[in-house]
């Protein structure tokens, strides 16, 4: 665990942009090649990196971004960066960053919102929008480590076009009998749609839990990530459903 790490990330390192991909109208994926100095450290699925930008006059801005790639590709990290209105760091990434650019980063950071493939316990994942980021790393690690632990993802997005990693998630569900996903569209679903067309609510969560572990049991762990209000509601639903506080881990993005 990073918990035992003596140096969680104090030093800044320079990563190089290896690829830029338009994932949805508002989210781009950036793959960064890690420098030699960071290769040994590795990371756990669910952790994040700090990014620091420095203007020519010395002005700096820092933000934290979850890693979306799997720890079994230790030489690179993928970050999903959503364009935020007036976001100085996200707009720089969306408008200016190109392959080959160098970016200062430090990490990996965080250790509570992590999943290790050793775990065989059933897990419920709940993601809202770009909150899928750290959970995607966990699901990719699950796939690459051939974990047979049961997992179910409930993923809320605005419209079909806003679903991050849509094809990859569908593919995962198709090829892995122990993984299910439910996508809930909150601002209108297409005519033919095999997911949900409402916000994630208590009945949807109860049905998902029943699919995952049966109606008499509860998942051993839930990971919830998204905007603050989203996480607050989901945490309350999970406590209402009977999950204990310590089995629910949360990560909140933005104000």
């Amino acid at each position: 665990m990073a918990a035992e790490s003596k140096e969680p990330g104090a030093a800044w390192h320079i990563a190089t942009v290896a690829s830029v991909h338009d994932e949805t109208p508002r989210v781009k994926l950036f793959r960064l090649n890690l420098p030699e100095s960071l290769l040994k450290r590795g990371f756990h699925a669910g952790q994040y990196f700090d990014v620091r930008l420095t203007a020519p006059d010395g002005y700096q801005a820092q933000r934290s971004y979850s890693i979306t790639s799997s720890p079994d590709q230790p030489n690179l990290i993928e970050l999903a960066i959503e364009l935020i209105a007036d976001g100085e760091v996200s707009s720089y990434f969306h408008e200016a960053v190109e392959v080959g650019d160098r970016i200062e980063i430090r990490g990996p950071i965080g250790g509570h919102f992590t999943w290790l493939p050793l775990s065989t316990k059933p897990v419920l994942h709940i993601a809202g929008g770009s909150g899928i980021a750290p959970i995607m790393s966990m699901l990719r690690h699950r796939t690459s480590s051939e974990s047979r632990a049961r997992a179910l993802l409930i993923f809320s997005a605005r419209t079909e076009a806003d679903i991050l990693f849509h094809d990859e998630l569908d593919q995962m569900a198709k090829s892995d009998p122990n993984f299910n996903h439910i996508i809930a569209l909150t601002r209108g679903a297409p005519q033919i749609w095999n997911g949900e067309d409402r916000r994630i609510d208590r009945p949807m969560i109860d049905a998902a839990i029943s699919t995952l572990v049966g109606s008499e049991e509860l998942p051993d762990r839930a990971y919830v990530c998204g905007g603050s209000d989203f996480v607050e509601s989901m945490g309350n639903y999970l406590l209402d459903s009977g999950m204990s506080h310590s089995d629910v881990r949360t990560e909140r993005f933005g104000p």
Binding site: W12, L53, A55, P56, Y59, E88, Y92, I103
Partner: peptide
């Protein structure tokens, strides 16, 4: 390290 195209949107 300077990011040449970064100017920031200083509030």
């Amino acid at each position: 390290m300077i990011n040449n195209k970064f100017f920031g949107r200083r509030r």
